[in-house]
Amino acid sequence: MTSTAAVSMPSSEAEAVAAVTAQPFATVLAGGTLLVPQHTLGQVEVERAVWLGRAEMDGISRSNGRMTVGAAAPLAACARLDAPVGACAADVGDNEVKAQATIGGNICSPAPYGDMRGPLLALGAVLRWADPDGTHTGGIADFAASGGARPGVLLLDIAFAVPEAGSFVALRRHHTQSLTAMSVSAVRGADGNVTIAATGAAPDACRLLSAEAVLAGGGSIAEAADASVADADPYDDVLASAAYRRRVLPVYVGRALEQLGE
């Protein structure tokens, strides 16, 4: 593709916010693993892009029991974190893709991409993003409700309390480039409560509140696993059928909870 899109290269988060939120809105270029091929193949038009590679938005830090991950942190770096975030990041693409793809790009990519939304939902992660009105914070669902990734919006970082324990299980991918058909993330917080989220059980990542309630009420893993189906909205796509998703969800919920040591 020979489009002559201009690319600005901010050297700080503040510069990046200014560049992304200025009219006319620019396209955000983070790892580029989705945008660059689409651009090459003429599937997107880009007038102006903002590349985050030098904006120093890729830091990962831990302080007072909270982990903060810059939106431009590559999945290879996220893969070194504990479950469920680390295990999920390790399960995306191959080594080269992980080295380049960012956690922010993953969160902002529509299903069936966006595996990271699962563990972050389970963790109750707080996203921080900027738009022309200023800077906002909220959960995965709040970000989506605000309109999610769109022109003029820049995801800045993701923060979550480091859990007591976390687990992540996913359907085995046929090939390292394949997309994950379903995953389940489970987290036990400092208060002992267990939260569970899944990807591939519904058209987008979802909490499995019924299963959580069973556990909170003293139910067994098997009972919680069975209950999880009530939270699902199984669907057909090229990765799996709705019937298959309905059938395997409880199995994977069970495995995630066993791994958690429930």
Binding site: L29, T33, P37, A49, W51, E96, A99, Q100
Partner: peptide, 27 residues
């Protein structure tokens, strides 16, 4: 494939393997 899926375009960037089809040259 020009989509990061096959590996045939892999090059070293500062010694690390990268998919050249996924990498904007400005990066």
């Amino acid at each position: 494939c020009e989509s990061g899926g096959c590996g045939a375009c892999t090059v070293l960037v500062d010694g690390q393997p990268r998919r050249s089809c996924l990498t904007a040259v400005c990066a």
